[in-house]
Design a protein around this nucleic acid. Sequence first.
DNA 1: AAATCTCCCTGTAGGC
DNA 2: TGCCTACAGGGAGATT
Length: 271
Amino acid sequence: MPELPEVETSRRGIDPHVSGRTVTKTIVRQGKLRWPVPVQIISELSGQTILGTDRRGKYLLLNTAAGCLIIHLGMSGSVRIVDNSQPAGKHDHVDIEFTGGVILRYHDPRRFGCILWSAHPSDQHPLLRDLGPEPLSEEFTADYLFARSRGRKTPIKSFIMDSHVVVGVGNIYANEALFMAGIRPQAEAGAMSRARLQRLVASIKEVIAHAITVGGTTLRDFVGGDGKPGYFQQSLRVYGRGGEACKSCGSVLKEIRQTQRSSVYCARCQR
DNA sequence: AAATCTCCCTGTAGGC
DNA sequence: TGCCTACAGGGAGATT
């Protein structure tokens, strides 16, 4: 599923093909996504030039002089560049066609993603306005997490997955970062020491930075081809490995449910 | 304010 | 082989 590294990899993959190009038409085959695709984008986008691409958390942004196209990939979405001789397949819900016959094609089997339009600067959009800092930014520090977590009874894993605290930490990376930091997912956020949060911040940055680096090696998959988005292939140490042996100490990894999400951890390595 | 629950959707895996 | 069901998951919005 696309997490922040996949979205960033997608952005880097499509940017050279869409930036500076002008939209000739937009085709919406299936507008029933997470929210209905606003029909106005068909008219708003036409004739607009993409000034550049951006990313905020897991939101992919395409900027024009008239406004900003906001794309979220949900958990099964992908974007790729094709030319207009490529027939649309199943789940290819939206095409944005540019001069020269270049098409940005949005594909999303489960339709948990969204495509929205913001006439105002994207950081004022309700979905983006209250988001926390980027995990790789200088703002995301142990001091910040410490201050934000005081008084919070919620488990640390739920806390770091809250996009209002920090963006882009999905279930996979939350599990991996907590393992790397030696912290149990159910530890109370508000009771954690600054030193432990420092380890956690470092782990989150490391896991995500590494994933972006690795994702960058599969950029070619975003152009043409079969549209496989080149999902980050990481050697997961805990995620999806409940009941298996810890790669560090050999103990059997435990699996629990937290707020409807599976958490896997090593009771020996994580305290 | 914070914690918890619900829902959107379909591919995949497991049971029979 | 094929049908059926359970489950996965991002994250906003409603509810407690």
